[in-house]
Design a binder for these strands. Structure first.
Lengths: 292, 292
DNA sequence: TTTCAGATGTAAGTTGTGCTAACAAATGGC
DNA sequence: GCCATTTGTTAGCACAACTTACATCTGAAA
């Protein structure tokens, strides 16, 4: 196709609108511009073709024969284009948002809050993919990931989501340690971790607990970890949001809460633009995380 | 059709070109722009749709699935539009140029020169319609008219073509008048006119000859008029171009040459844009008339 | 008839899209 | 290794497209 001798697409679209509505004013309304703009486009086209395409007929415009021929082609062409665009858009909004996240974050932060998003956007399906590995987002069809770390994932875009909100908790009767300083130094503590909860170990290391020397027990789920800790069997690093009720009721006590600079949950996305549904979800995430 | 949520047509066209050529550079060449322009359009589209449409693959771009779908629709749409435009253009160039003109101008000015246009544009057919009346140009399918007058035709566009180039001529032996002053005052001159040559009478009146009082003989063709004048039977107003050979050879003498301010041949067109062939002819007319 | 609403016609001035220029970086053939 | 060719990205400019403003025309209602 040679675009050199095809007039401005804007002018052709204007003429198409004139042909559809039968008047300059109507076309102007359809295109959301003034009638003057449409009139100028029409005159430009006529100059380009060297032939009148429409003539005034009372109030309104009627097409010449040449105008009719052109309008027929333009109508089909633009309709096809609009159809393609519309279908692509429709497909996107229907596509579910796929979010990869750590099991801990899903359990302790997202699940208690996600109802708000469902009620706000009942038409947007959210599919949560719990997991630890940062696999290829594009290959796995994942729109965004929520990961724990220092905020640096090469080739990806990361924005901090929640501050660092872990605590070392134990049952009130657990008396082997009373401060953070004790935790790292002393052997003999019994640490419990859920198998999937890598972020707690990261945080622990960052604040000074060396699990290579201290040792830790790994359980299948965080529920089992909690039971063990409530029973006074040892220590655990838990998300504040998850243990707040226990702390309030006195079932657990917090031995340490604190920052490990930069460490926290991040929203990780590809540099590519997000799908509309994913954009909605991200906006909701930011708002809820900020208001926390 | 609602154009509000259809992205810029230029961007869509750029993406169409990318889809066709399989590369940004190729698309840029096809559209006669730089690769940067195409790249920006593509990114704009992807942001608009919130979905990647193409990804880099070595040297070149391959479309995503969404990109394929969109490209299919755009390809059809733009092809249809280009087809309509091309057909309209093709129809025009084939159309002959219809020129209405006075018989005198045709005979004495245009016919000796028109060969130049034929050789320059062998593909453009020129149809000459001799006649005097200024009928409705559009109704009669006339592209342009060459008329004699003062340059004012209401509702039409007129541009001066040739200066006023008439002369009062007579045979050398015709001695009844020697100056313009004589011509108007004296009765008894024998004036000859071709029936179709209204412009000579207009010019004559404008320079001071009152044919109502002087009287004139009307002949069927200008050839007959010339014969009569050459035979010394009387006076005639003739186009300079036509009688120059006679004047040079001494067969005729010029009694007066002069301006009748504003009076002359004009190229008269509708305000509408001209068909391409007609534009070519007009350009040629102007050049030849100016170089005269 | 006059009047009015709504249409087109056109000039002049403004604005934002779309482009270029210029550089960086990656790829593939030599 | 080099070199040609591609894509990526930014800053800045030009002009197409638009608005504003006013004039003119049409058709219907008063």
């Amino acid at each position: 196709m040679d675009w050199k001798d095809i007039p401005s697409l804007a002018a052709l679209r204007a003429f198409d609108a004139v042909a559809r509505s039968g008047s300059l004013s109507g076309a102007a309304r359809a295109l959301n511009v003034t009638h003057a703009a449409v009139s100028q486009h029409l005159r430009q086209l006529e100059a380009e073709f060297g032939e009148p395409l429409a003539r005034r007929e009372g109030q309104g415009m009627v097409l010449t024969e040449a105008g009719h021929d052109l309008a027929a082609a333009l109508g089909e062409g633009f309709t096809r284009i609009a159809e393609g665009v519309t279908r692509l858009r429709a497909r996107q909004v229907a596509r579910p948002v796929v979010v990869a996240l750590t099991p801990s974050f899903a359990e302790s932060w997202l699940m208690p809050r996600i109802g708000g998003f469902w009620t706000a956007h009942p038409d947007v399906e959210v599919r949560l993919v719990p997991g630890i590995g940062m696999s290829d987002l594009r290959r796995d069809g994942i729109d965004m990931a929520i990961r724990f770390g220092a905020g640096s994932w090469p080739g990806l875009r990361a924005e901090p989501l929640t501050p660092n909100r872990f605590a070392v908790v134990a049952a009130p009767g657990y008396t082997k340690a009373r401060s953070l300083a004790d935790l790292g130094k002393l052997r003999g503590h019994d640490w419990f971790f859920s198998r999937a909860a890598m972020e707690q170990r990261l945080w622990g290391r960052a604040v000074g607990v060396d699990f290579d020397t201290v040792g830790a027990r790994e359980m299948g789920s965080n529920g089992m970890v909690m039971s063990a800790v409530r029973a006074g069997l040892g220590l655990s690093i838990q998300d504040m949001a998850l243990v707040r009720p226990d702390l309030a009721s006195g079932q657990l006590v917090s031995l340490y809460e604190g920052d490990a600079e930069g460490l926290g949950y991040y929203l990780v996305t590809r540099p590519d633009p997000l799908a509309p549904g994913a954009r909605l979800f991200r906006r909701w995430l930011r708002r809820v995380a900020a208001g926390d």
